[in-house]
């Protein structure tokens, strides 16, 4: 099974959903993610549990356990340029078969890939990535799955939310339909299949202080 996961070394990582995945009896996962998390948190935890067989990522240097898992032969890492990975996911969601990128020409990134010359310039033909599941995290979301991100936590959450057959978003602040400004939506609910509340302790900014929310109940 293939899973796209949003976030960037802890910025906007869907930790609530990753925590839940830790409790599930799954294995043989192929993960498409920029990285494996930050230090000991994130996808690296699923790797340590033996649930992941392969990660397609641009950089796994922020999670020391990944190197250990690779050395012990427990994990395969396919290093992919960051822009190429983002576009693989975007294209996977956009119904495109792949795309042509100049990134990586003359490097090992072109190994095993078709080179296409267009207007006299060589490009690498990169197939799109379509995943079974995507896990993302947003600052605000409504019950239809419209998402608003915050700051640099938008990152891979946007292309990841597009590329999978079943997309689950954890949101720091959950709204009913119609409460979010249509002009401000970053990811349309058309891409999102399920929305859950993020674990409060992983939230950066709550729209309403927790004490106030508790009092109003």
């Amino acid at each position: 099974m293939s899973i796209a996961i949003g976030g960037f070394i802890g910025q906007g990582d869907p930790l609530t959903l990753i925590d839940y995945l830790k409790t599930m009896d799954v294995g043989d996962l192929t993960v498409y993610e920029n990285d494996a998390g930050y230090r000991d948190r994130g996808t690296v935890e699923l790797v340590n549990q033996g649930k992941v067989k392969k990660i397609v990522a641009s950089h796994v240097g922020t999670t020391p356990d990944i190197a250990k898992a690779m050395n012990e032969g427990r994990l395969e890492v396919e290093a992919t340029p960051q822009g190429t990975l983002a576009e693989m996911l975007r294209c996977g969601g956009a119904g495109l078969g792949g795309f042509l990128t100049p990134t990586g020409i003359g490097t090992i990134a072109e190994e095993g890939k078709q080179i296409v010359e267009l207007n006299g310039r060589p490009f690498i033909l990169v197939p799109a990535a379509r995943c079974d599941i995507a896990l993302v995290r947003a600052h605000r979301g409504d019950t239809w799955g419209n998402l608003i991100f915050r700051g640099t936590s938008r990152n891979f959450n946007v292309p990841a939310a597009m590329c999978a057959d079943y997309v689950i978003a954890e949101v720091e602040n959950l709204y009913t339909m119609g409460e979010l400004d249509p002009e401000a939506i970053h990811t349309s609910g058309i891409f999102v299949d399920a929305v859950v509340r993020a674990n409060v302790s992983y939230c950066t900014v709550r729209d309403e202080p927790l004490e106030a929310a508790a009092r109003s109940k």
Binding site: D35, V60, P81, I105
Partner: peptide, 12 residues
Amino acid sequence: LAGMGGAMDLVT
């Protein structure tokens, strides 16, 4: 292996 991150895209 750490990975190339965004470096390949940046130099290109």
